[in-house]
Simulated scan of single mutants.
Amino acid sequence: MAHGTATIGKDHYRTEITVGGHALVADEPAALGGGAVGPAPYDLLLASLGACTAITLRMYADRKEWPMESVEVGLHLSGQHPDRRIDRTLRITGLDAEQSARLADIAERTPVTLTLKGGLPIDTRLV
């Protein structure tokens, strides 16, 4: 399935990421000692959810041959563990209320949504 690597050297806290054959840079904001040269880790988490949501809704609308012009996925992470939450808003243009409601329902079952809601075991080992 998916595979990636993240490498950090002595730069505070610039991290080179390779995933899916693409290079990304992550960092922390200056207020946390980073150089703000890329999204912070939670920003990348929101980006993953937003991309999966938008892509899934586009696929569904295309399959149904609905005239969706665009979908904008707004995301906001708030709170601290165990009360942390993501609020997601959808702005859909080109569809009627019934079609938009169906897409909002579909958004609750995108692959990344289900992964985040269900949790995911992480096994760590030294190599």
Rank of each mutant, 00 (worst) to 15 (best):
V25R: 13
H22L: 15
A26I: 10
M59R: 10
E16R: 09
K117A: 06
T93W: 00
T124C: 13
S70M: 11
G20D: 06
T115K: 02
G35M: 11
Q80S: 10
A30S: 09
D62K: 13
W66N: 05
D27V: 00
L57K: 02
P121K: 01
T5Q: 10
K10E: 13
G79R: 10
V37M: 11
R102D: 04
E108I: 02
I122F: 00
A51E: 05
L24F: 14
A51P: 00
A101V: 07
T124Y: 14
K64W: 02
G38Q: 03
L116N: 07
T18M: 12
L49F: 08
Y42W: 13
T18L: 10
A54D: 04
K64A: 05
T18G: 08
G34E: 07
P67I: 08
E28A: 15
I8W: 12
K117M: 06
E69T: 13
A2S: 12
L49E: 04
G34R: 04
E16L: 13
L45V: 13
G4T: 10
Y60E: 09
I55L: 11
P67Q: 05
R109S: 12
S70N: 11
I86V: 14
I8H: 13
R14Q: 08
R102E: 08
P29S: 09
V37N: 14
T53N: 02
K64G: 01
V73L: 02
Y13K: 01
K10S: 13
L95F: 11
V112C: 12
E69W: 04
A97G: 00
R91V: 14
H76D: 03
E28K: 06
R84C: 09
L44R: 03
R63W: 01
I92Y: 00
M68R: 06
A40R: 15
T5Y: 08
T124K: 13
R109M: 08
L103T: 02
R88N: 03
W66V: 02
L103K: 03
L90E: 03
L114P: 07
G35D: 15
M1S: 07
P67D: 08
D123E: 14
Y42N: 14
Q99R: 15
A31M: 14
L114Y: 09
G35N: 14
G74K: 05
H22Q: 12
T5E: 11
E98A: 12
A61S: 03
P29R: 03
G94N: 09
L77G: 05
R14P: 01
L95S: 01
G94A: 03
P29W: 04
G20K: 05
